[in-house]
């Protein structure tokens, strides 16, 4: 009788871990979308309302971090890249949200290092969660979409200095891109940018 190693079990284990990570990624995506939605209320709010919004945003961000801590725990001693595809969408959406939050508060671009250390610091056990550079770049592309929406809203509110500020911040595709997924996202971003330019033009004339 031919026998094989414990294939069904170990395969089962892998499948289960992947399922758990996919679920956490989905939860992260949903929570991040909610956070972005909240942040869009910030520009048109009064000062005191604004403070409340940012307090609430900070607390939502903290509760998203819990997802990353669970993922860190589940990935410990396992291969990060083997499961990367399972949680990458959630990471990108989270980055979109925190990049947006940082921009609203400080008008600067949140660095990858800061995003990573924020997650680590909030973890009671101090575990590191790795964010790949590709996810960071994809997150920036998504964030650009929010920036454009912000731009359009500022145009509608007649906040011309804000519009100028946003437009100057929008990265004018300075990179020469040689990656397919990223290239596609940046093409979409460029099309949105052209739309924003047209809106700004229409307000100008």
């Amino acid at each position: 009788q031919v026998r094989y190693t414990s294939y069904p079990d170990s395969q089962q284990e892998q499948n289960d871990r992947r399922e758990r990570l996919i679920k956490l990624s989905r939860d992260t995506t949903i929570a991040s979308k909610r956070l972005i939605f909240l942040l869009h209320r910030f520009p048109s709010s009064s000062e005191s309302e604004g403070e409340d919004i940012m307090t609430e945003a900070q607390s939502q961000m903290q509760s998203i971090h819990a997802n990353f801590h669970s993922m860190s725990a589940d990935l410990m001693n396992h291969d990060y890249y083997k499961y990367h595809r399972a949680f990458s969408p959630g990471v990108q959406e989270y980055l979109e949200a925190v990049l947006f939050k940082e921009y609203l508060q400080t008008k600067t671009l949140l660095t990858l290092e800061k995003a990573q250390s924020d997650i680590k610091e909030s973890d009671a056990e101090g575990r590191e969660f790795i964010i790949t550079h590709m996810d960071y770049l994809l997150g920036i592309a998504d964030f650009t979409g929010e920036l454009m929406r912000l731009c359009i809203n500022s145009v509608a509110l007649g906040q011309h200095e804000e519009v100028d500020l946003h437009l100057k911040f929008l990265p004018f595709l300075p990179m020469s891109i040689n990656d397919r997924e990223l290239g596609k996202k940046y093409e979409v971003m460029k099309q949105s940018l052209i739309k924003v330019e047209n809106v700004v033009f229409n307000v100008t004339v």
Partner: peptide, 8 residues
Amino acid sequence: EAFSKCNE
């Protein structure tokens, strides 16, 4: 520029 390091 945040992009410069990415290219690296």
